[in-house]
Design a protein around this nucleic acid. Structure first.
Lengths: 347, 347
DNA sequence: AGTTAGCACTGCTGGGCACAGAGTGCTAAT
DNA sequence: ATTAGCACTCTGTGCCCAGCAGTGCTAACT
């Protein structure tokens, strides 16, 4: 039974202290130093016994016989869970974050700021994932004809963002037709997500051919390309690459290079980060990200979804070394997610 | 007279060989190895004499007394100049590059590909700078009124790119006014750059108030925000951060970190890279980029402007260690710039 | 005069070795 | 159940020394 070691209250206390201390110093922690933390109520020898149990339980390990102990991934997981509930941001951090975020006006600025804040707080990467296109809400559509037969489609979302695309339809349209189509979309689907619109159109196409035939066809031809434009690259915003270079856990060039390559392939990040959208907890802590790279062993990701209105949109998070200040990081991610959603709403 | 050492033909030959060899191996090159390159027509001792002269001239230096010689920035400059004229791409590289570029369709894809190609070829960073907004050419403008009084402005450029923005004008417009303004822009300024339009509008405003008064005013109010939207961040595209980690010249963590920070502040890159637009040579080689960071000493940038039609638009380039394969890099930059411009034109 | 062989000199690199320090596991005493 | 004591293990560091790569200089050669 692996968890046996963790059952006893004192053992958990010791484990938490070891983790905390290792996060601070980055060096294997000895029984003596933990003993001191307990205000000398327990001797090093006792702590050693506890530590031996914890090692059996898979929470600690020794780099070599005569070294102190280092937390394993399991220890971090335990630790994160232990403190997640009571994680709270220092007033100083809170003010600083709000200050940083409040000066941003455009969506881009806000994103950049949020990423920057997260990177600074964690000494790791700050990552922002934009809402996937299909979750975008249509407020207003407009189309017009170009002299050469192409069509400009502009979709407006609440909050002032817009997306446009030039479409080469396979048949020619008149401006009147375009107006009718746009009007149809506006009356029928204002407030729907693109994803939902698309599904509904396909459904209607099958069941109610006779009623709207032309319009539905037109709408599909004209909207689909816009919806599918999906720029997978621009969706992810990463800030703070420079930070991870300093971290001693990635001092190995090979590891560092591999990690940076993984980061450049941003879609890999997205899947890990977006796990939090369906997670039950408000903030998700993942420890040991094998998906990322060989060095993923000692990577941790802390992520939270942000919402505008009440629709989950995308997520923000931190990717950093497992040896990270979890209290600070967890609460910062939560706070940034909150501010980020708010800020987007205000545009 | 610093250049004295370089006057003699044989000295230049030796210098070039030292640089070439150092680029290959990355280690200080000895007199013996150069002697071998000369097919034994000169003894190591002779080469040593030449090298001593070159050291006096500031082209070589010794890490310590009993080591070989390493090229200085001056040596690289000389070398780059020497080979720039005759730089030519291997058939293999040429095919590969064309292959990589040809599969890209959208502007984003093309940019990404170009960046990727440059990074791969150079083992450094591939950098693409988009044309500054003011150089964008207007093909067609359109505006319409939103229910709440805001105005959507869409500017179309030749080649199918478009840019839109939602403007909150300080007075209210009617749709008819908007149509008239757009029409005015289209008739008067189709084919002009935004920069030029803006200037001309301001000029006309001063001299011909009476004729177009309303239109000019409207055009300015509505277009300026679009033109000034200027996303300084999105303008620069960098690929290949992972590459530079491997380079032994940046093995020092401190240097590496500093460099990555500099790269994240992309605007710093832009000014260096854009120097090539006004340079007389088709491809500009800069060696020792002090602007970037302390480690800039051993950084080199190779850049070339790309054009669409006959308008210089932006630039593409490589940022890498001074110890770089210049022949390959220079010709690759030239070729990518050419293909990039072409590809943009075809969209 | 330019070139080259020979040789002494320099500074780095890597292996071997001893030593101190940190930390543990175990046993026996409290 | 806790703890003091002690033997044991492993690492990091400093030091020395030999080996090596490469130079600079001088003197001889063409």
């Amino acid at each position: 039974m692996k968890n046996a070691a963790i059952q006893e209250r004192r053992n958990r206390q010791v484990l938490a202290d070891v983790v905390r201390m290792y996060i601070e110093t980055g060096e294997p922690v000895s029984s003596r130093s933990i003993s001191k933390r307990f205000e000398e109520t327990l001797s090093p020898a006792t702590i050693r016994n506890v530590m031996a149990d914890l090692e059996d339980g898979g929470f600690l390990y020794q780099p070599h016989t005569s070294a102190g102990r280092v937390p394993t991934a399991a220890a971090y997981r335990f630790f994160a869970q232990e403190i997640a509930a009571q994680a709270t941001l220092s007033v100083h951090d809170r003010d600083w974050i709000r200050g940083q975020m409040s000066s941003a006006k455009t969506t881009e600025e806000i994103t950049e700021r949020a990423g920057h804040v997260l990177a600074e707080v964690s000494n790791g990467l700050g990552i922002i994932v934009a809402p996937p296109l299909r979750r975008i809400v249509l407020e207003h559509a407009r189309m017009w004809l170009l002299p050469d037969g192409r069509v400009v489609v502009v979709l407006l979302s609440p909050g002032g963002t817009s997306r446009d695309k030039i479409v080469k339809p396979n048949r020619s349209f008149t401006q009147a037709e375009l107006d009718a189509t746009a009007d149809f979309l506006n009356r029928q689907y204002s407030g729907w997500t693109l994803e939902a619109i698309r599904e509904d159109l396909l459904l209607k196409l099958a069941t109610e051919r006779e009623r709207y035939e032309g319009l539905i066809q037109s709408a599909l031809t004209l909207c689909d390309p816009v919806a599918l434009e999906d720029g997978p690259v621009r969706e992810v915003y990463v800030e703070g690459t420079a930070q991870i270079v300093g971290a001693p856990e990635f001092s190995s060039q090979a590891h560092l290079k591999e990690l940076l390559e993984a980061i450049e392939e941003k879609h890999r990040l997205v899947s890990v980060l977006n796990a939090c959208i369906d997670a039950p907890e408000p903030v998700l802590v993942q420890i040991g990200i094998k998906e990322m790279s060989q060095a993923g062993e000692n990577l941790a990701m802390i992520s939270a979804p942000y919402t505008r209105g009440d629709l989950a949109q995308g997520s923000v998070g931190i990717l950093g070394p497992t040896r990270m200040q979890y209290e600070r990081a967890i609460s910062a991610v939560a706070y940034v997610a909150e501010l980020f959603g708010e800020a987007l709403g205000k545009i």
